[in-house]
Design a protein around this nucleic acid. Sequence first.
DNA 1: TAGTTGATCGTCT
DNA 2: GACGATCAACTAA
Length: 202
Amino acid sequence: MARLKKLPRSFYRRPTLTVAKDLLGKHLVRKLGRSTLIGKIIEVEAYLGEKDPASHAYRGLTKRNEVMFKEGGHLYVYFTYGMHYCCNVVTEKEGIGHAVLLRAIEPIEGIEMMWKNRKFTTNLTDETDYRMLTNGPAKLCQAFGIRKNENGINLRGNLIFLTEGENISRSSTRATTRIGITVGRELRWRFYIKRNPFVSRK
DNA sequence: TAGTTGATCGTCT
DNA sequence: GACGATCAACTAA
């Protein structure tokens, strides 16, 4: 049952790039009404606050990014493009605006509910490309029912938390440049599990 | 397979 | 007033 153990506070209070790599393979657990949704983290991106021109926290504390400056182990949810939410795991100690964006997840439990949350109207068949469920940051937020309400949630609580999941060796992961940003393009702060079909892009 | 675009609104300039 | 840590639908080839 060790795999079900919640990650300790100390896990999040380490250097952000280390936490980002270690997040791969961990399980994201979301309690939603009577359902429990679980997914394995496949792909992440690190955003290093003041050191990182692409980070929301690059220019310091604002009302929007205040959760990023909390103590490691909180959830930072932001709204973008007028219609999408993305969620981040806050790292480091209080006062440091670092976070790790969750970009892709492999569904493990509660898959029916995830399809419902994604508002899929068409019938699911054997032909359905099941990867579209959670292979992007806004998709996984929608599937897990994470929205503005969940911004600032403590990951040591019982609503949303992370568990040990699977051990992923460093040799089976890969570091590349981040997706969808214009500044800080050259930094290789995106990490994913090699050969996993849920990786959002090549 | 690659490239383009519309949707839609909170946040910061 | 402009734009974005996105997605899905569409077009062209």
